[in-house]
Design a protein around this nucleic acid. Structure first.
Lengths: 176, 176
DNA sequence: TCCTCACGGTTCGGTGAATGAACTTATGGC
DNA sequence: GCCATAAGTTCATTCACCGAACCGTGAGGA
């Protein structure tokens, strides 16, 4: 029962995309993968997703060519985005901008900057400084301006509390 | 039980957005609303969604200010996108381009053109001709180049089998 | 007036998925 | 060997989705 339920309008690209990425949790996993998360426990601790569901979703994403499963030197499996998976960045960015506009306060937004020139990423996905559309790997995610009171303590939240370049692995050193 | 289940990372704009549009069917309803669908039966016939689920999702979208429910002259309720709802167009467009790239054949793609100048909409959401980023209401959706064999017979599919400007109501004349 | 139909729901039983907790296996360090 | 961790798997409960049947209202026709 690996395949998710299908939408009937199979000729519509939105429906086709949502058959995979519309499943609960999958787009958040892709988002974390864009942030550089690659290990099972990091996805789990950061998202708070049940283990069985995470297993199912990772398999789904690997089967559909969005994530690639590779066995790291440590012997543990790691998951990284394929080119097809990185192609979801515009969709994720659209949701980031929409969510920021309607649900996040002004000083709660986390800016993205273009690694090449330092410009801020505008809502249309272009660098305000140089005008190009950076790939996700060319972007740095910054912490929000106002430090929020309650901080999560999982490794991913720790790694994202300082400027972090997308698609680069998060630090594996345990906190504290 | 109107509210959908919440994702834990409430400080993330993607998670906040997905709490609403990440629910099954909701983004397809928004897509249809962008196409100009406004009536319960049209959503139902075009999407093949169960009535109870459609009722639930329409209420959810109205409560969250994405759709507005208005009683038409006929006495029937109609649903139209708010400005906040139209703000989801970039996300829908991102999924259209991603879905087209990976799941739709070259001649199966339906082009969007800019009403003002007639230019085709590029993957980055800009008009290839004039370079602007048209709002959804300034776009026309065209049928695919190759006529597909099996056509659906519901009013929405009929209306979209010819060029149709987004956000304009679909024809209410019954087919046949 | 009565009948019928279409539309927009609501209700209900059956089914499958999500959830959290407990259990299993494999790996590495001491 | 012993312990800790990582990555699953299994399981009972809960919950959402599904399809079908059932309501309530308004329009149109005989």
């Amino acid at each position: 029962m690996a395949l998710p339920r299908e939408y009937t309008s199979e000729d519509c690209p939105v429906a086709r995309a949502l058959e995979i990425v519309g499943e609960r949790w999958t787009l958040l996993i892709v988002r974390d993968a864009l942030y550089g998360v690659s290990r099972f426990s990091d996805f789990r601790d950061h998202l708070g997703i049940p283990r069985a569901v995470l297993t199912d979703r990772l398999n789904l994403l690997v089967e559909n060519g969005i994530l690639a499963r590779v066995t790291a030197a440590s012997g543990r499996d790691e998951y990284s985005l394929t080119a097809k998976g990185e192609g979801l960045w515009p969709a994720v960015w659209s949701l980031i901008t929409w969510g920021n506009e309607h649900y996040v306060s002004e000083d709660g937004c986390r800016p993205f900057t273009h690694v090449g020139c330092g410009g801020t990423l505008a809502a249309d996905g272009r660098c305000e400084s140089c005008g190009t559309r950076p790939q996700p790997g060319e972007l740095t995610l910054h912490p929000r301006a106002k430090t929020s009171p309650a901080r999560k303590t999982d490794p991913v939240s720790q790694a994202l509390s300082v400027p972090h370049r997308l698609l680069t692995p998060i630090a594996r050193t345990p906190a504290q």
